[in-house]
């Protein structure tokens, strides 16, 4: 029963990640791509990690996965912020690709 819940969470995370991959190809501007992809990436990662923690039960492996999850949840917005700031400070303007 508890394994079934973990499998359900993993399937939901896979659906979220597939939408993120579609979003990377569907949008025409870099800024809208980074807005969509970072959000979907965070949700998919969090959901699939909760599924893995439930699947591995109460053990040291589950605690290690929890530590990895906390680390990635702290560093993921920072790297998104670094990429967006680098594009903004280098003079990339909104709708630059569609205007050309």
């Amino acid at each position: 029963m508890i394994d079934f819940l973990a499998y359900l969470l993993i399937v939901i995370a896979l659906i979220f990640m597939s939408l993120g991959v579609i979003g990377l190809f569907r949008f025409k501007d870099f800024y809208s791509r980074i807005l969509i992809s970072s959000k979907i990436e965070t949700v998919g990662f969090l959901t699939i990690m909760i599924g893995f923690i439930i699947l591995s039960g109460l053990s040291y492996a589950a605690m290690k996965i929890l530590l990895i999850t906390i680390l990635v949840m702290i560093t993921n917005p920072l790297s998104t912020h670094a990429i967006a700031r680098s594009a903004f400070l280098s003079g990339y303007t909104i709708n630059q690709e569609t205007r050309l």
């Binding site: 993120g20 990377l24 791509r33 980074i34 990429i83």
Partner: peptide, 9 residues
């Protein structure tokens, strides 16, 4: 920056 975003993902 698209390539960096892909690397992160």
């Amino acid at each position: 920056w698209d390539r960096l975003l892909g690397l992160n993902a």
